[in-house]
C-alpha cells in the first residue's frame, strides 16, 4: 500500500519513467499475491485520498463508479476462468478415456496358417464407436468380431468396454457364433438405454475344415470374393441388432474358403460416408478394393482407408473399420 502511494506520488510529481517501471514491478507482485484488479483500484482510491484530501467530489464519485465496474468485471472474469479450467480438465479426461479405450480395444492380428489378415479401424472423433477383435484357440480356430455401437461419444465407449469383456469371456470357449450373439444380446439388452443398439458380426474360421462360420446381428453386410469365379458377392446373413429384444435368436451361416478367396468385413462408416451431398455407394467401395487386390491384406486395407480419408478431405464423419481375411496356400 505504502509502495503504491509512494510511486504514485513520485509519478505525479516528476512523471519519471522509473516510477512507471516500479508500477510494472508492483503489478507482478500483485499477481503473485493474487490481488484482484478491484483491490488495486481500491488502493488507488485510498492513495489519492491520502495524497489529495480535497479532491473534487466528481473525481471521488467517478472512482467509486470505476470500483463497482471492476468488481463486476472481476466476478465475470473469475467465472470465465473457472469454466476454462473445467473445460481443460474435461478435455484431458476425454483424452485419458480415449487412450484407455485404445489400450482396451487393442487386438493383435494373429498369424494363422493359411490366412492373410489385415485390419484398420479409425475413429472419426476421439472415441471409437467401432470395435473389432481377433482371437485364437488351441485348436487353431480363429475368431473375429466386428461391431458398431450406435450412439456416440462416452456412452458408446462405455458400451464398447461391456462388449469387449463379454466377448472375451464368451469366446474363451469358442461357442458357435449364433450362440455367442444370443448371449451377448441379452447382456446388451439389459444394460443399455432404449435408443442405443449394437450391430455385430461374429465369425469363426476352422483351418481344418477351411470353413468360416458366422452369424450377424444386423451388421452391414461385408463382401465375399470368390477367386475361382473372380467375382464379388455380398456376404449373406440376417439377424436383429443387439439390444432390441432379449429373446432374439440368430441364424448360423457358413462360407467354404478356397485358396485366394477373401472375406471383407466393414462397418457402415465405410459405406455411409458422404462427400459433400453425395453418398459413397457400396459399388464404389468395391471398385477401390479391386484396385488394390494384388497387395497383402494389411497394405490393402490401409490403402482403401487412405483413399476414403482423402475423399472426405481427412475429416471422417463416422468411424471407419475394414477387415480383410484372405485364404492363401
Amino acid at each position: 500500500m505504502e509502495n503504491y502511494r509512494y510511486y504514485l506520488k513520485r509519478y505525479i510529481d516528476t512523471q519519471d519513467e522509473s516510477a512507471l517501471y516500479q508500477a510494472e514491478q508492483l503489478s507482478k507482485l500483485y499477481i503473485q499475491n493474487k490481488i484482484s484488479p478491484e483491490e488495486i483500484i481500491n488502493k488507488h482510491i485510498q492513495a489519492l485520498k491520502d495524497l489529495f484530501p480535497h479532491l473534487p467530489k466528481e473525481i471521488d464519485l467517478s472512482m467509486n463508479f470505476l470500483l463497482e465496474t471492476m468488481i463486476s468485471y472481476g466476478l465475470a472474469y473469475q467465472e470465465h476462468q473457472s469454466m476454462r479450467k473445467q473445460q481443460l480438465s474435461l478435455r484431458s479426461e476425454m483424452e485419458l478415456a480415449a487412450n484407455m479405450q485404445q489400450t482396451l480395444l487393442l487386438t493383435e492380428t494373429p498369424n494363422i496358417k493359411g490366412l492373410d489378415i489385415g485390419a484398420v479401424s479409425v475413429p472419426a472423433k476421439q472415441l471409437n464407436g467401432d470395435y473389432y477383435h481377433f482371437s485364437t484357440d488351441k485348436n487353431g480356430r480363429f475368431g473375429v468380431a466386428i461391431a458398431d455401437v450406435i450412439g456416440k461419444g462416452m456412452p458408446a465407449a462405455l458400451a464398447m468396454s461391456m462388449i469387449k469383456y463379454s466377448v472375451d469371456s464368451f469366446s474363451d470357449h469358442h461357442p458357435k457364433p449364433s450362440s455367442l450373439l444370443e448371449k451377448l444380446n441379452r447382456v446388451v439388452e439389459n444394460n443399455v438405454e432404449p435408443g442405443m443398439f449394437i450391430t455385430m458380426l461374429y465369425g469363426l474360421y476352422n483351418p481344418i475344415t477351411e470353413k468360416f462360420m458366422y452369424a450377424t446381428a444386423g451388421h452391414e453386410p461385408g463382401f465375399f470374393y470368390d477367386a475361382t469365379k473372380n467375382e464379388f458377392t455380398e456376404i449373406e446373413g440376417r439377424g436383429l441388432v443387439l439390444g432390441v429384444s432379449d429373446d432374439t435368436t440368430y441364424q448360423e451361416y457358413e462360407l467354404a474358403l478356397q485358396d485366394g478367396d477373401i472375406i471383407f468385413l466393414l462397418t457402415d462408416g465405410v459405406t455411409e460416408c458422404r462427400i459433400g451431398d453425395r453418398f459413397i455407394e457400396r459399388q464404389e467401395v468395391l471398385e477401390v478394393i479391386k484396385h488394390y487386390m494384388h497387395l497383402p491384406a494389411q497394405t490393402l486395407v490401409e490403402k482403401v482407408y487412405k483413399h476414403f480419408e482423402r475423399l472426405q478431405e481427412f475429416q471422417l464423419r463416422d468411424d471407419f473399420t475394414l477387415i480383410m481375411i484372405r485364404k492363401q496356400v
Partner: peptide, 15 residues
C-alpha cells in the same frame, strides 16, 4: 436417415 434415426424407432418400439 442415419443410425441415430434407427435408435429413435427402437426407443419408440420399446415404448
Amino acid at each position: 436417415m442415419d443410425s441415430t434415426g434407427l435408435g429413435v424407432f427402437i426407443s419408440a418400439l420399446k415404448s
